[in-house]
């Protein structure tokens, strides 16, 4: 088994596994209950695409693909930051829009004492 054969089989395996993880991430994006889940799935999709480009660079021998991967990482980071700002500005999530008839007590996670104190302090300030 020569070095080229080894690399061929390794890149083939990587391409198959990365395709599988792309499919799993797309399932999460389709199913994701809130917008934040979908944005997280987009971030993961960009990370997997960077890996895909690196594997293609190994397989074909074009080294310019690495620059494309770096540029894609920059764009993905900026997209995630922009979506986070958008979620912050929009300010609603489907869980908040639920009818208030069901008491939210047992469904919510318990909050620590420090959090309660800080919240009280903050409310008193404003």
């Amino acid at each position: 088994m020569s070095a080229n054969d080894l690399l061929q089989s390794a890149t083939g395996f990587s391409l198959v596994v990365l395709s599988l993880s792309l499919v799993l991430t797309v399932v999460r994006i389709v199913r994701g209950p809130s917008l934040a889940d979908r944005v997280l799935g987009l971030d993961m999709l960009v990370a997997i695409a960077i890996g895909f480009i690196a594997v293609i660079a190994v397989r074909t021998g074009f080294n310019l693909y690495i620059d494309i991967a770096i540029a894609l990482g920059l764009v993905g980071f900026l997209a995630t930051v922009a979506f986070a700002r958008f979620i912050l500005m929009r300010g609603t999530s489907p869980q908040r829009l639920e009818p208030a008839a069901t008491p939210p007590g047992p469904r919510m996670a318990k909050r620590g004492k420090a959090g309660q104190a800080a919240r009280r302090r903050r409310r008193g300030d404003r």
Partner: peptide
């Protein structure tokens, strides 16, 4: 940034989470 925005927008933790400080 994403976690802070989601928490700010009212995304709740799963019930098995222990605490939210």
């Amino acid at each position: 940034l994403l976690a802070k925005a989601a928490h700010h927008a009212g995304q709740r933790l799963h019930p098995i989470s222990v605490t939210d400080q």
